[in-house]
Simulated assay, not measured.
Amino acid sequence: MYIRVYTNRFVIRAFGEPEIEIEGTPDKPFTTERLLVGSFQEAEKTLSQGIKKSLGSGLIKKTPVVVIHPKEKTEGGLSEVEVKVFRELALGSGAAKVVVHEGSELTKDEVLEKLKNA
């Protein structure tokens, strides 16, 4: 699963059959003036709902492996604290394994490679 984080918005791409992409937006903003994720609880709630929606329903609960990619407010790179926030956000939303990515947009093959090497 590839999760891109924007101001008050998650774009979640699930690589199942069929491959889907959904957008999650919060009831209340989670982005602040300085931080992409300033309200952790609101962000976690929004991401959890998006992940559940992208996995669909079934008898067996699925726990995705995730690349999470902050796309805004990353000037100068992410601090150690910010990386931890994104990792904890994904884990708290149901991910089994998380890779935090900084840099350019990833292709499906690049996401799968990052997850394989994690």
Rank of each mutant, 00 (worst) to 15 (best):
G103Y: 04
F40I: 03
S48C: 11
L106T: 08
V83H: 02
T74L: 00
I12F: 04
D109T: 14
S104C: 04
T107A: 11
L55D: 04
E75W: 04
E102Q: 09
P18L: 08
K62A: 10
G77W: 01
S57I: 13
T7A: 02
R87F: 07
G58R: 13
P70T: 06
F15R: 04
F15Y: 14
G77A: 09
I20V: 15
K52W: 13
K71H: 02
E44D: 06
E33R: 12
G58E: 15
G16M: 10
E105W: 14
R13G: 04
T46N: 01
E33N: 10
V81L: 12
I68V: 13
A43M: 03
G16T: 06
V83S: 05
L106M: 07
E75V: 10
I12Q: 01
P29Y: 06
K73H: 01
R87D: 11
K84V: 02
G38R: 01
P70H: 04
S54V: 05
E110G: 02
G76I: 14
L78W: 01
H69G: 01
F30W: 01
E33Q: 10
L91E: 09
R9T: 05
E110Y: 12
F86V: 10
N8S: 01
A95S: 07
V83N: 03
V85K: 00
K61L: 15
G16L: 09
S48G: 14
V81F: 12
S79K: 08
D27C: 10
E33G: 08
E42T: 10
L47P: 06
E33Y: 13
A90G: 02
V83T: 12
K97L: 10
A43P: 02
S104N: 10
G56Q: 13
F30I: 02
V65Y: 11
V67R: 04
K108W: 03
G56P: 13
V67I: 08
V66D: 00
I60K: 15
L91I: 06
L59E: 11
N8D: 08
L91N: 02
E44M: 07
T107V: 12
K53A: 15
T74W: 00
L36P: 00
Q49A: 14
S54A: 12
L78N: 02
I68D: 03
P64D: 08
G38L: 04
F30N: 02
R9M: 08
G50L: 07
P18Q: 09
E17A: 12
I51L: 04
S39H: 14
E42N: 13
V111M: 11
S57K: 15
L36T: 00
K28D: 08
P18I: 09
V11Q: 13
T63C: 12
L55H: 05
P26E: 01
K73M: 08
Q49R: 15
R9E: 06
V11Y: 08
G38N: 03
E82I: 06
A14L: 05
K97D: 03
V81Q: 12
F10S: 01
I12V: 09
G76A: 12
E23T: 12
V111K: 11
K52Y: 14
V37S: 01
R87V: 05
V81W: 11
V67S: 01
K53Y: 10
A90H: 01
E21Y: 03
K97N: 06
P29Q: 07
G38P: 01
K28G: 02
I60Y: 15
K52M: 15
P29H: 09
